[in-house]
């Protein structure tokens, strides 16, 4: 029996650049703040324990998933004892010498912890201010996995910018999309906020409403060498309504109490995901599309 409600806490952190141990201590302080009313799920942003722009520093700070899981679980237990919890966090992953921008989904029980899933960012921005693919390898698969409250997918930052990624996550059964992100703010022609914040929120709202899924967005905050991360962590319901949102520039805990039955209600009134399930093969088998990897005649463009 899956839980009908999910109590989530998004921890919008402002990491000290490159100081992993110090950032674990900050997480411990956040956990301590949560201890009185422990959530079911804690979500940290992308690169939450190192900072985002590391360039070659990635090779110094990237960790095996197991080591990061151990550190997260120990930090949680230091603050919250034997309370069970699920934790999601972005981190730079070292998989035996191959480096990824990853997100971990960790289940922490009183005496043990289990890595439920590691998602490796598929879309590595390498343009303008971004330089990820120079240092990191691309993930190759979008995983959708079971949790105590239903199927979940993790999309890291640009993963969520390609409409087909949340679409495929939803078709594969995800009911909650967790989006750890680090978004350097830009655009001063918006209304009341940087326009990149508006753009992010609009996109996430559309994904939530189109597929009838909850979205938990965890945005890094703080400046990194003049580039201000836009925070604005938020929870969005399956109709695309922003339930709660953090300010852009302040370390914040966003507590979101979600009624997962809202998904069924939203999908009853707008059954797009069911329609897509039926039509997707026709769309993907279109001969004008690039053929799947491994087929003999990949068209050139």
């Amino acid at each position: 029996m899956k839980a009908a409600r999910l109590s989530a806490a998004i921890v919008q952190t402002k990491p000290a650049k490159g100081r992993y141990a110090e950032n674990l201590q900050t997480a411990r302080e956040a956990f301590a703040q949560l201890a009185e009313r422990p959530p079911d799920l804690v979500v940290f942003p992308e690169a939450a324990f190192t900072g985002y722009f590391l360039e070659g520093g990635v090779y110094d700070l990237a960790l095996p998933a197991k080591r990061f899981a151990d550190d997260l679980a120990r930090t949680w237990r230091d603050a919250c004892g034997t309370q069970s919890v699920d934790i999601v966090s972005g981190f730079y992953e070292n998989d035996e010498g191959t480096y990824y921008n990853s997100a971990i989904y960790l289940r922490v029980e009183p005496d043990t912890e289990r890595v439920v899933h590691v998602h490796r960012k598929m879309f590595l921005p390498t343009y303008g201010v971004f330089d990820e693919e120079r240092f990191l390898s691309r993930g190759r698969k979008l995983g959708v996995f079971e949790t105590g409250y239903g199927k979940v997918a993790m999309l890291i930052c640009e993963d969520a910018w390609h409409a087909i990624v949340p679409t495929i996550a939803a078709v594969k059964g995800a009911r909650v999309l967790i989006v750890p992100s680090a978004s350097p703010g830009r655009g001063i022609d918006g209304e009341g906020e940087l326009s990149s914040i508006t753009q992010w929120r609009d996109m996430l709202r559309l994904a939530a409403a189109e597929h009838g899924v909850f979205v938990l967005y965890a945005g890094l905050t703080g400046f990194e060498g003049g580039k201000g991360m836009t925070g604005s962590s938020c929870a969005i319901d399956p109709r695309g309504v922003v339930l709660v949102q953090a300010p852009p520039a302040e370390p914040t805990i966003v507590r979101a109490d979600l009624d997962l039955r809202e998904i069924d209600i939203a999908r009853a009134s707008l059954p797009l995901i069911g329609d897509l399930d039926a039509a997707l093969p026709d769309l993907l088998l279109d001969e004008e599309l690039p053929l799947p990897r491994g087929s003999r005649d990949v068209p050139r463009r």
Partner: peptide, 10 residues
């Protein structure tokens, strides 16, 4: 560090 807390409104 103390984090600001924001919650889903009733």
């Amino acid at each position: 560090m103390t984090f600001l807390v924001v919650e889903t409104p009733k």
